[in-house]
């Protein structure tokens, strides 16, 4: 499967409706983004079972702002609707493969439990 452009209108639905979604936040003027684009594209051909989304941060500024993007390219990975990876910088192909393998191998039950525990701890710390 090739990459697909994501916008504010379909971002959340795409993330929630698919098991694993990788999102590349990019801009046309950004050199590292252009360098990362073919790597991302090749990975999308290699892993048709995953969704590879691309967000043009110039066209979707509000979306990029809502996603907390402060530098580009930024790669995010969602699994079962949960953000499990977020890192700025262009990744080489091998590193992207490592991220994909890592996301596939996650124990999501443990992740959900950890998020619940950490969120509770953060809330308590903020109120204390």
């Amino acid at each position: 499967m090739a990459t697909r452009a994501l916008a504010a209108a379909d971002f959340t639905q795409t993330v929630l409706d698919n098991d694993i979604v990788l999102v590349d936040f990019w801009a046309a003027w950004c050199g590292p983004c252009r360098q990362f684009a073919p790597v991302f594209e090749a990975a999308s051909e290699k892993h048709p079972e995953l969704v590879f989304g691309k967000v043009d941060t110039e066209a979707e500024r509000d979306l990029a702002g809502a996603a907390g993007i402060t530098s580009i390219p930024t790669l995010m990975a969602f699994r079962e609707g949960v953000l499990v990876f977020s890192q700025p910088g262009a990744l080489p192909a091998a590193a992207l493969e490592q991220v994909i393998d890592g996301v596939k191998g996650l124990d999501m039950a443990a992740i959900h439990a950890e998020i619940a525990a950490q969120s509770g701890a953060n809330t308590a710390a903020a109120e204390g």
């Binding site: 996603a67 953000l83 998020i115 969120s119």
Partner: peptide, 15 residues
């Protein structure tokens, strides 16, 4: 925009 609020919540849900 509620769609943006959803995206914000989605991204911030993971500590």
């Amino acid at each position: 925009d509620p769609r943006l609020a959803q995206i914000r919540a989605l991204v911030r849900a993971t500590p």
